[in-house]
Design a binder for these strands. Structure first.
Length: 670
DNA sequence: AGGCCTCGAGTTCA
DNA sequence: CTCGAGGCCT
């Protein structure tokens, strides 16, 4: 890439800037993960350009703030190299194996795996068993003296019973619950909030006034012994990492209890995988796993590279925030004609899967972000699955970025695009294609018709419908029921067996409920719930065609807007015609309720249930006369919670709503 | 009119 | 899951 050099310059400046905010001011603008992504790109580029020696990234990182006394570390404070996936881990592992062979070792392999705590590294010096100095890591060779603050931390022994001279290293961190309390306090006082627990911990320890530190309830985990000699000056440093941890624990230090001694790389991977899903469940932040060779004597012989130990590695959890480049912005036309801009990006791995597209919702979102085509962006995939562009890194612009404009004409049918107006006549942010016969809308309607909550025709996916439309084999929902096996077999990539299966599932879908049919019609404002309400007011399927405004509005949950929308749909002859013909093809069955045990009860489901799927649970609740809502409120009767519940669980606790598990739930309907 | 609550619609990848 | 807006209650 010809722009490589320029980008390196820009990346260096940006990385430097954010490193400054991170280390010196404890007030970052971007997340650690996004910062990591920038550093990684810079390293990669430098490697390609052969610039490795002069780069800023070769510095170990950190700077020393003026207001604290400087401390020259007696032992160098390394940071670990990072790996991000099993491949990279394997490479590290094989390299270590080669070094072990190089020093003539071929005994058993053992490694400790520890959680990598997201906090502030602290170095504690004891003389004759008494804590005499505490420092931050700083740049690895010079840190800041924070002894006066460390004395306020309860979990750090000020005196060890044995009169040893020792240097121990660990992490100071803040509990998530404490951060919440402190931030809500700071919010009240109009003070700037801490971005995360690590910044809060760092901010709390880098105080000139130790009284502030005292109130912050800082916690610690100690994990390394750098030096340990007894009163006579004899080296009594344990020979193993587990031994070190045991000594620390015996002598009153706080040691994390998740550490495990492992024997192989596959065990390491298992340990790592085990903690990925539960990493957020601890009071401390965890951003990965640290693997250390168990034998410390051999470790020293294996030694160090220019900037990190060879015998240990930080195996970082998959990032939920990364950087990538927006290569294009395209638009999509949905079922309702809504035109949504979508960013097409250089594919990146985020939270375990490769992402290349992200919705931008509407033009306002693009303006809010200040996004142009060609921009480098920070991409996030939090808890959920849906990627979101968080921020544009304007500093990395080259000048060749292009501004995106909403198309004036629908890209699918060429019809002039319109902006919808809302109830008070303002133009809303959404753009629409007004053409009801727009191919994109017809496709969307059909996909909706066969969807799970609609007629539920499995085996008739988006692609197949698209193909069938393209080939003019179907034009309306009705045609689906006229499909023959031969129609499908002629399609590309369609085998005999799968065609048969699809025909089978179409046959099965002929027996359905009125609610499913009405939902499937895709009338605007009529979703799953409203379709059910309408179906329940019709004694016979035919009555749907003769609904009037009064009848509709009389239904609890239906107002003017929804009623108008339904009547609007019914006023079109083609729609009425389609409905009649569909009825002729279908067998409408009554919904049979098994009981009314749950009538007047509203449920909210969260997390994964042990045996029931979410939909099965929902079905059970509805079959027994209950309702299922999407969010917890004061009116919720029960929250049905499984493992890894979401925010709903907390909401329930806050509102005092009864929380039940699957077993208790099944008892309710028994 | 304002404040809840609930529903609809859009959304990504394997 | 989240946003926005419809419906209903006060």
């Amino acid at each position: 890439m010809a722009n490589g050099k320029k980008r390196i310059e820009q990346l260096r400046a940006l990385v430097d800037y954010h490193r400054g905010l991170y280390h010196t001011h404890d007030a970052p603008e971007i997340s650690d993960e996004a910062y990591d992504a920038l550093v990684r790109e810079l390293l990669d580029l430098e490697n390609k350009e052969g610039l490795t020696t002069e780069s800023l990234t070769q510095k170990v990182g950190g700077a020393v703030i003026e207001k604290f006394k400087k401390v020259k570390h007696q032992t160098p404070q390394w940071s670990y190299d990072n790996v991000f996936n099993f491949d990279e881990l394997t490479k590290w592992y094989e390299k270590l194996e080669r070094f072990l062979a190089g020093v003539g070792y071929n005994g058993p392999r053992a490694y400790t795996a520890e959680l990598k705590i997201d906090g502030l590294k602290i170095i504690l010096v004891y003389e004759k068993g008494v804590l005499v100095q505490a420092a931050t890591r700083g740049d690895g060779s010079v840190g800041e003296d924070i002894t006066h603050n460390i004395l306020e931390i309860k979990s750090i022994p000020k005196k060890i019973s044995a009169p040893v001279n020792a240097i121990v290293v660990g992490e100071a961190w803040m509990q998530k619950s404490d951060l919440e309390k402190i931030n809500s306090e700071r919010n009240k006082n109009g003070e700037q909030l801490f971005a995360n627990t690590r910044n809060a911990a760092a901010g709390s320890l880098r105080q000139l006034d130790a009284n502030v530190t005292r109130g912050r309830n800082i916690q610690t985990f100690i994990y390394t012994i750098d030096k340990l000699v007894d009163a006579k000056g004899k080296n009594i440093h344990p020979n193993t990492q587990s031994g070190s941890l045991a000594w620390l624990k015996e002598n009153g230090f706080s040691v994390n209890d998740k550490t495990k001694l492992l024997k192989s790389i596959s065990d390491i991977e298992k340990y790592y995988q085990k903690y990925i899903p539960i990493r957020d469940s601890f009071e401390y932040g965890v951003d990965g796993v640290v693997i250390k060779f168990e034998d410390l004597v051999l470790s020293e012989r294996v030694g160090y590279t220019a900037k990190a130990p060879r015998f240990a590695i930080a195996y970082k959890f998959p990032a939920e925030e990364v950087t990538t480049i927006v290569e294009d912005i395209a638009v999509q036309v949905g079922r309702t004609g809504a035109i949504t801009p979508v960013a097409h990006m250089r594919p990146v791995l985020v939270a375990g899967s490769t992402v290349a597209r992200a919705t931008l919702h509407n033009i306002d979102e693009i303006h809010r972000l200040g996004l142009k085509i060609g921009d480098t962006v920070i991409l996030k995939k939090a808890g959920d699955v849906i990627p979101e562009i968080m921020r544009v890194l304007i500093e990395l612009r080259t000048g060749s970025e292009k501004t995106f404009h909403m198309p004036k004409k629908c890209p699918e049918c060429g019809k002039e695009v319109v902006q919808k107006t809302n109830s008070i006549g303002e133009q809303s942010v959404a753009y629409y294609c007004p053409n009801k016969n727009c191919p994109a809308q017809i496709l969307g309607q059909l996909i909706h018709f066969v969807s799970k909550k609609g007629l539920n025709i499995v085996g008739l996916g988006d692609r197949i419908i698209e193909k069938l439309l393209e080939e003019n084999i179907i034009t309306t929902a009705l045609d689906i029921f006229k499909l023959k096996k031969s129609d499908l077999v002629n399609l590309e990539k369609f085998g005999d067996k799968s065609a048969e299966n699809t025909i089978d599932s179409i046959a099965q879908a002929r027996t359905t409920t009125l609610a499913r049919l009405i939902y499937g019609l895709g009338i605007s404002h009529v979703g799953e719930e409203t379709a059910m309400l309408i179906a329940n007011t019709c004694n016979k399927p035919n009555e749907f065609l003769h609904l009037d405004s009064d009848t509709l509005v009389a239904v609890d949950g239906i107002g003017g807007t929804v009623a108008d929308s339904v009547l609007d749909w019914l006023s079109e002859d083609a729609n009425v015609e389609l409905y009649k013909k569909l009825l002729a093809e279908l067998t409408i069955t009554e919904v049979v309720k098994s009981s009314n045990k749950l009538s007047n009860k509203t449920f909210v489901i969260t997390g994964t249930l042990p045996t029931l799927s979410r939909d099965q649970a929902k079905q059970l609740i509805q079959d027994n006369g209950g309702k299922v809502a999407g969010s917890v409120s004061a009116k919720t009767s029960y929250v049905l919670a499984g493992t890894e519940p979401g925010t709903k669980y907390k909401d329930a606790q806050k509102l005092g709503v009864q929380i039940i598990d699957e077993v208790e739930f099944l008892k309710l309907i028994k």
